[in-house]
């Protein structure tokens, strides 16, 4: 697909000069996990947004530049990941659930 990022979601239709994107994929034992919940927490740990993952385990946030925490919830599992986002860039985060 035109505009696709290797391994990630397509940015087709987005004006990337105005967006600060955090996106990625949730997996367990190498298999994508759909329907997991990914929560975006700001630098103070305050909740900002939450999305469920797609059938292919993908998620995406339109954030602001800065440091963020991604908290992933799935039945029997919780995983936190730190990420730094920059304007006009895509921060790709792979979340592997251990449980």
């Amino acid at each position: 697909m035109c505009g696709a990022v290797a391994g990630g979601l397509s940015i087709e239709g987005l004006d990337m000069s105005k967006e600060t994107v955090i996106q990625g994929q949730v997996s367990r034992d190498g298999q994508p996990v759909g329907g997991a919940y990914v929560r975006l927490l700001d630098a103070t740990g305050e909740f900002t947004a939450e999305v469920p993952t797609s059938a292919t385990g993908h998620f995406r946030f339109f954030a602001a530049p800065g440091s963020w925490t991604l908290r992933t919830l799935a039945p029997g599992a919780q995983e936190d990941r730190q990420v730094v986002a920059r304007l006009g860039q895509i921060a790709e985060v792979e979340v592997a659930l251990s449980a």
Partner: peptide, 19 residues
């Protein structure tokens, strides 16, 4: 809304496009 929307740093929740 989230603190960033309150302060005017974001216009929408962070899982939605901002334009």
């Amino acid at each position: 809304r989230s603190p960033d929307e309150y302060a005017g740093r974001l216009l929408a929740p962070a899982h939605l496009p901002q334009e």
